[in-house]
């Protein structure tokens, strides 16, 4: 189960332990934009949809410039890993635009129609003021639509 991350880390570090992000960043804390609960929801949604489908879902939140589609496609090309099998969800809350970009391999499993349906569900949540919930629901829809290959199901 997802539970709230603890903002105050317990001091269990040894001399070999690297500093946590909460120790390093003093000026802009990690939960400046989203709370730790929301970050945990985003994290779980991204990681689980990527693991279950074998596609690589990344989420970009920020300004997309004047030509939002071109910018989103350029970001997708730089999203790391293998862009053919990656899906980029780019949300620009200031411009009220969401773009979903799928690579060539990913678009075979995620046709544009499925992406449009997920985008519709996301924009409905965004318009209602629920940014994180919309993203999580959109990821869930995309992941369900892409299916879960049998090769990725680990025997327990």
């Amino acid at each position: 189960m997802t539970r709230a991350l603890e903002a105050e880390s317990h001091d269990t570090a040894t001399t070999h332990t690297a500093p946590a992000r909460t120790d390093e960043i003093e000026g802009s804390p990690l939960d400046e934009i989203f709370s730790f609960q929301e970050l945990a929801r985003l994290d779980e949604a991204l990681t689980m949809s990527s693991r279950e489908t074998g596609l690589r879902f990344t989420l970009y939140i920020g300004d997309l410039g004047a030509r939002t589609r071109a910018q989103a496609e350029e970001l997708h090309a730089r999203s790391g890993g293998n862009p053919t099998d990656s899906v980029l969800i780019a949300v620009s809350p200031g411009q009220k635009v969401v773009e979903v970009v799928t690579g060539a391999g990913a678009s075979r499993r995620l046709p544009d129609r499925a992406c449009a349906l997920a985008v519709l569900s996301m924009t409905t949540s965004f318009a209602a003021g629920d940014l994180v919930g919309g993203i999580v629901n959109g990821l869930r829809q995309l992941s369900d639509q892409a299916g879960h290959p049998a090769a990725l199901r680990h025997p327990h």
Partner: peptide, 18 residues
């Protein structure tokens, strides 16, 4: 270094505004 852009073939996707 930032990963160089990789051509991912014909792209698909969707766009939405709210």
């Amino acid at each position: 270094v930032a990963p160089r852009p990789v051509n991912a073939g014909p792209l698909g996707g969707a766009r939405g505004t709210w």
